[in-house]
Amino acid sequence: MKTPLALVCLLIVPFLGSDYLTNLLIVVMLHALPAIGVSLLMGYTGQISLGHAAFYGLGAYGAAAFSVHGGGDPWIGIALATFLVGVMSSYLGWVIFRLRGHYLAVATLGFGFIVNIAFVELRDWTGGPNGLPGIPPLDIPILDLSFHTDGTFFYVAWVAMILAVVMAQNLVNAPVGLVMRGIAESERAVSSLGNDVTSLKRKILVISAAVSAASGGLYAHYIGYISPQPFAIDFSIKLVVIIAIGGFRSIPGILFATLFVTVITEPLQELGYYDVVVYGLFLVVIIAYMPQGLLQGAYGLGRRMLSGARAPAGAGR
């Protein structure tokens, strides 16, 4: 109820006249897409992924290569890259979903590394470590719309985010969403009820990868330059931090967490490297002590402290 209103309110941001704020929110919205993707896979379906930066990067490089090397239309490039990443992730799922637990985590991590190494080494296509410059901005010539500026690109990112949010919400609220959450709890129960668990996991992975790839494509055309670095393992881990803060299974929570992580690191980064320490501490404290996510965790903690003041300690046991 409140979140949709807040999302609509965002539309006025470009009119506030601040490129900085607009830009910050564009980055937040673009990062929200892969975060939602990870949440669908990891939060709702219980399948850990430490390799989502790879999908994001493949989307970006795919779209960029299409328009830079192929001279194709950026929109088609983004769509094509998204589609191909989806197809690829389906095969990837066929392979990796034989694994679980640590092994699944490490397999996704390894996948992320290999893709990043490919970005560095396939120099003819990717420009290697120096990156791929000259990615054209998006436009719609027929409508005479161009999205060169932050103020205009904001709406592209906004529409993308809204689409992702709506589709993710549709999915998790649909009957299939119940089964997704069932997989996280008991695969064999889900299977006995007639669901092909592996196939379902793969489908979720495809959606999750595709939404990340689409965001990557938009990112490439927004920044105009890409290099392997933003698509390295750090970004995969940042996505995990985001969904941990957001509470794993809450789309609004994840939107908030993306904003939070981006905004919180702003003042911290002035301090030099302390931001990384704080960032890591956040992750540790949330995972170790607030398994419900930061918001609910802080809420629960506050409530416990309040009730603890009233009732003697241990009375609730």
Binding site: M167, N170, L171, A174, P175, V176, K203, I204
Partner: peptide, 9 residues
């Protein structure tokens, strides 16, 4: 009810 139709409700 498949995954794809669910996305678009």
């Amino acid at each position: 009810v498949g995954v794809a139709p669910s996305l678009f409700r």
